[in-house]
């Protein structure tokens, strides 16, 4: 695939802000609009830009693409774990820590609470899905062309 140098540079440059925005949305989601889902899609869009710019083969060499399945299902597993782990303490599923009325530990503006972990799982899955699905498509297109 032929793309101009400009496109490639822009794509590479845009990847970082996309990821940063995604991260911000992910972490701040509990305070403001947005959550893991949005973050995942935005990050994925950043990745997808690489496909447009560099083509399928090049993009596939990037780390996150190769691990896409692990990221996706790892994320799902993480969310599941957040949901199910309270059972081991005899609590209902989805009992979040800290509980209602308890003090939240702040790390800057970031709140350290389990829903955030849950959201990270969502993020990973959505990211994995979007990138994975497009990657599968790209691969199919590639196969058809060769």
């Amino acid at each position: 695939m032929k793309t101009s140098v400009m496109t490639r540079v822009v794509a590479r440059v845009l990847l970082v802000p996309a990821l940063v925005v995604a991260l911000a949305i992910l972490i701040k989601g509990y305070a403001d609009t947005g959550d893991g889902f949005n973050a995942g899609v935005i990050a994925a869009l950043g990745m997808l830009l690489q496909y447009v710019a560099f083509g399928y083969e090049e993009a596939e060499r990037m780390m996150p693409v190769r691990l896409v399945a692990v990221i996706a299902f790892g994320g799902l597993l993480l969310s599941l774990a957040v949901a199910l782990l309270p059972l081991f303490w005899g609590l209902a599923i989805f009992t979040h820590v800290p509980g209602p009325g308890e003090e939240v530990i702040h790390l800057g503006t970031v709140e350290l609470i389990t829903p955030v972990v849950f959201d990270i799982g969502v993020f990973m899955l959505v990211f994995g899905f979007a990138v994975g699905a497009i990657d599968l498509l790209a691969r199919a297109i590639h196969r058809r062309e060769t």
Partner: peptide, 18 residues
């Protein structure tokens, strides 16, 4: 309730990778 649900659910996710 959750034991059965969680077990099959978790296993399903793990199996996705195999």
């Amino acid at each position: 309730i959750v034991f059965t649900l969680g077990l099959t659910w978790t296993l399903a996710v793990l199996l996705s990778l195999l």
